[in-house]
Amino acid sequence: MSSQSNTRATRPLMVWVCHDGRAGHISQLKGLTKALARQTNIEELWLDSQTLQVGFRGLLLPTKQDNSPDIIIGAGHGTHKSLLMLARTHRAKSFVIMKPSLPLPLFDGVICPEHDGLANSERVMTTQGPITKISPPPNTKRTQHLMMIGGPSKHFV
């Protein structure tokens, strides 16, 4: 077993969460980090892409340190460039929620609702609707359904 594997086994999964300040995107990111935390021990660092200062130096000399992220997750088109720069700088995996505005191969993973029009693949996982913080109660038989209708959308009239 490599020393990197030993180090990883003794510390939580370091997750950097890159957001654009929009409430819907933050809610989806919280839902995803909550789901991750149910699966493994994580440590989160939240970063506002609007105030991030990401330079090109890290692209030339990427490093991996003990406090570097293992994965960086972003939501919102305004986070994509910062997310990719940070992932490259810190040799971290990059994941984006929703269909990215940049080419898919630039990201390690994409999580998006079916209505974004991307097919499931090794790189893409589709969901039915957006990710939320709400978890259904365990072992509950559903006899009623709830439909939530949001605000303006390019998908609906």
Rank of each mutant, 00 (worst) to 15 (best):
M1Y: 08
M1S: 11
S2T: 14
S2E: 10
Q4V: 13
T7P: 01
R8F: 13
A9H: 04
P12I: 05
P12A: 11
M14N: 11
W16V: 02
V17E: 03
H19E: 02
R22A: 14
R22E: 15
A23T: 10
A23G: 00
H25P: 05
H25C: 12
G31R: 08
T33G: 10
K34V: 01
K34A: 11
K34G: 11
A35E: 07
A35D: 08
L36D: 01
I42F: 06
L45Q: 15
L47C: 12
S49P: 00
Q50H: 07
T51L: 09
L52K: 09
Q53D: 10
V54S: 08
R57Q: 11
G58R: 03
L60F: 13
P62I: 09
T63P: 00
Q65N: 14
Q65A: 12
D66L: 14
S68L: 07
S68D: 11
P69A: 08
D70N: 15
D70F: 10
I71T: 11
I71H: 00
I73Q: 05
A75T: 06
A75V: 04
A75D: 10
G76W: 14
G76R: 11
G76L: 11
H77R: 13
H77L: 02
T79C: 15
H80K: 02
K81C: 06
S82N: 15
L83D: 10
M85P: 01
R88K: 15
T89N: 09
T89C: 08
T89I: 08
A92G: 03
F95L: 15
V96R: 01
I97C: 02
I97M: 03
K99E: 04
K99L: 06
P105C: 06
L106H: 09
D108M: 01
I111T: 02
I111M: 13
H115C: 02
D116C: 07
L118T: 05
A119N: 04
A119T: 09
N120C: 02
E122Q: 12
M125I: 11
T126N: 01
T127Y: 00
T127W: 01
T127C: 01
Q128H: 13
G129Q: 04
G129H: 07
G129M: 06
P130E: 13
P130L: 06
I131L: 15
T132G: 10
K133H: 05
K133D: 00
I134T: 10
P136I: 00
P136K: 08
N139K: 15
T140R: 15
K141V: 08
K141S: 12
T143G: 02
T143K: 12
Q144I: 12
H145Q: 12
H145V: 15
L146D: 03
M147W: 05
M148F: 07
M148C: 03
M148H: 00
M148I: 15
F156I: 13
F156Y: 11
V157L: 12
